[in-house]
Amino acid sequence: MVRADAVETRPRLRRRSAGRLNRTPAGWIAAFCLPALALYGLLIIVPLGTAFYYGFFWWEGTQRAGFAGLGNYQEILTRYPLGTEIPTALWHNVLFFVGTMAIQNTVGLGLAVLLYRNPRFKRFFQTVFSLPYLISPLIVGYIWSLLLSPNFGPINYVLRSVGLESWALPWLGEPTTALPVLVLVNAWQWIGGPMLIFLAALGGIPQELEEAAALDGASPARAFWSVRFPLLMPAVGVITVLTFIGCFNIFDLVYALGGSDGGPGGAMDVLGLLYYRTAFEGGTNAIGESSALAMLIFVVIFGFAIVLERLLRRREVTQ
């Protein structure tokens, strides 16, 4: 009994004393959390709630007119050509995401592996590849639109001077090349991100595992795909989610490259641009319609994100 008491009491005492020592007063916790919470509430929750509310009303300029119910939703989904532009823009976001995953993240992985295997100049290249990060996407877009200008851009000039006249295309003016160019320019800017994450993840994998695979006779490629890559899956998951968020929120770069119309024949039109046009270039009921569209976009992206997250979690567990 005594023993049992002693056994029971000791940890309790330890817990209590440890709790005393480590406990931070709730006020301090609140003091540190409040600014972030206030900003989050002010910049995310309030606009979201406001958009949800505004979407249920008709608007005449900045004056609220009457209760619309789901009228604004019906309007944006059925009115020509907006009703057809929503799925097209969503599809462009999906293509942009797929293209970015295929190019930016695979090349980022390749660069990470190269730098991991050849540590010489690793710091230098890490910095070089991450530098475009520091530039605003708007500026990146304007710089690339100047570089790719068919009349004055140096890229077509170089192509012509080396005899590749047929390659000197109006890159941002052709509906077939505009979206691939967007993917490439975006990858140019952000490739440092996945590279750094993969590099950190590669550094966390014990060397012995690959050595053991090599001793068992696995080729370097086989050792990478069978040993390293499965262990990189958590990093792949993080990068996929970040890429997804970036690709579905894209606005600034595509605006700088193709304007608010989404480039030639709307080939680069994405949900962000569509929202911009509805809200800032729309008519009398712009607030109602754009609020409804914002909620629709939110629901679609939120839904996508949940499905993606579930899939990745499941894959991580099975790996």
């Binding site: 931070t24 007063p25 709730a26 006020g27 301090w28 916790i29 609140a30 003091a31 409040l34 600014p35 206030a38």
Partner: peptide, 17 residues
């Protein structure tokens, strides 16, 4: 005392915001 300062700090931050 520290709890009191904590509450004050929280209120101060709120007032600032």
């Amino acid at each position: 005392i520290s709890r009191r300062y904590g509450v004050l700090a929280a209120l101060g931050t709120l007032a600032l915001v």
